[in-house]
Design a binder for these strands. Sequence first.
RNA 1: CGGGGCGUAGCGCAGUUUGGUAGCGCACCAGUUUCGGGUACUGGGGGUCGGCGGUUCGAGUCCGCCCGCCCCGACCA
Length: 577
Amino acid sequence: MRYSRSFIYTLKEEQKEATIVSHNLLLRGGFMVKLASGIYNYLPLGLKVIKKVSQIVREEMDRAGAIEILMAAIQPAELWKESGRWHEYGKELLRIKDRGGRDFVFGPTHEEVVTDIVRKFIKGYKQLPVNLYQIQTKFRDELRPRFGLMRGREFIMKDAYSFDKDEQGMDLSYQKMRDAYNNIFRRCGLNFRSVEADTGSIGGKDSEEFMVLSKTGEDEIVVCDRCDYASNVERATSITEDEPGEEMELKKVATPGKETISDVCEFLGADPKFSAKALVYRNDEGNYFCFFVEGDDELNLIKAMRATGSIEIEMVSDEELENLGLEKGYIGPVNFPNRDVKVLCDYRITKRNNLVVGANEHGFHLVGAKYGRDFECELADLRMVKEGEICPKCKKGRLKKMRGIEVGHIFKLGQKYSKAMNAVFLDENGRAVPFYMGCYGIGIGRTAQAAIEQNHDEFGIIWPISIAPFEIEIVSLDTRSEEIRNYCDSLYELFEKEGLDVLYDDRDERAGVKLNDMDLIGIPIRVIVGKKSFEEGKVELSLRRDRNKEKIDKNSVLDRVKELRDKLYRELEEVRR
RNA sequence: CGGGGCGUAGCGCAGUUUGGUAGCGCACCAGUUUCGGGUACUGGGGGUCGGCGGUUCGAGUCCGCCCGCCCCGACCA
């Protein structure tokens, strides 16, 4: 591609819209431009990156035996009603009507559609297993779109769906996808970890997320410093060192005006660990719940939702609290005053012999409360794990918290959708069995942006060669010298002929402009042709990732460039970490 | 959804307090200059001041409604 005939427009100034580096660089580098909140146009550079990532994904999916299709973006509501998600999915689902008033959705995911396809064609177990995938534009009406492609509303996603005749088959399909995903992200040059994850609204049992490690990630993950345990905090567990404490008599004490854990504990001289904090929530069905966790623990909302079978959950207002007959700041599990509010305690609560709890009476708390003796309720794991706690897997290592960008997610769905949608096949015994499904997603744009978040410097992007918009850039620093121009032109044509992916900056611009654009766009291998070296018969070769320049005979550029290119690709094949 | 902020040229912003016919930098066009890290100078084009309505002789500026965008929060009762 000749720069002068391309559609690449870089921006000098920081973009107000962007709050993280990768987003800023995508905009400034002319990779994309915003059309509306969370909706972007991909410009030629951005498109090339998208294509490169997609190609890697395709190769690995194909290699794993998956088959590419392309499903409809717009889907009839009937399918979503059949699966039950028409009501479950919430406001992120963009619902639209056609001229006849019929309901449709712009697909945020394709379980329903693919299940419908498969049930139409797969009738017997001999046709299984099958894994169908597509790379497609999806839409989720995000609560708060941000960070460019990281959390957009419209986004390009690879999604795959496996269908098996039994659970073992499903496990195998899942395993294959996990291997494929590891290959994909390694080939994209990313530093990532796979972690145990919550299944969210997709449903199902096991699931793993592929996280690109980055401080700007939206997800928090915990990893063990001794073994390979890694989990999203949403479902992470830990072993905590417990001290039961001394058993004491239950006593009511006046705590006027002390309504927060820290105030109460300070006032009573108690350790917050020996207190129970109450959190009252209402779920999507209008049911009320009161969760008790230890005073210095945090409630893990995802765990709370799972424990209550809720899809959405919201903290109740002070006003609602009052209507429920609950005293703000003095809520306690002993003689809990409202039967319509379901009470759940975190397991840790049961391990303390004496707790400070609210007395359900304004201005009073109870001390010495003990689970089983003074109160009982449903128990659940409700707490957020903390850094430094003991690994639940090896039982030795300590847990460390990190942040990650979720670029891939694989699930074992089981028969959730096939049952709901009556998608069945006949097994060896002629019995109708719902398919055992798995689903596997990769955010294509997000993967590209995560790569920038991990690979950049103060001047711009440093693309891994496998997903760079071009592999090589030739910069002609002196466009008025006919000799140099002819040389560059023929070098460019040679590269093209050799099948190298090359950008040739032939613009009549100042050297500084071109060199800055070169750094910003971040193409990994650069060939710089300037007057000084050229007169000595040399051109300059450098890699974007380091500042070293090598002067090389102008007639042996091709060989050296190919060498560098092969080296960069080889590095991505080697196992990381 | 709650709170805060912003909307003036393609981008980044000033002007709004005190109403008087719109400006700066970058980008763009023409010319001169410069030529290995965003060159300097001269001249130029480009605006329904987010939209609608109101107040006023006169509104970017004051008032009302609406729209769009951004940030923070939505775990401690």
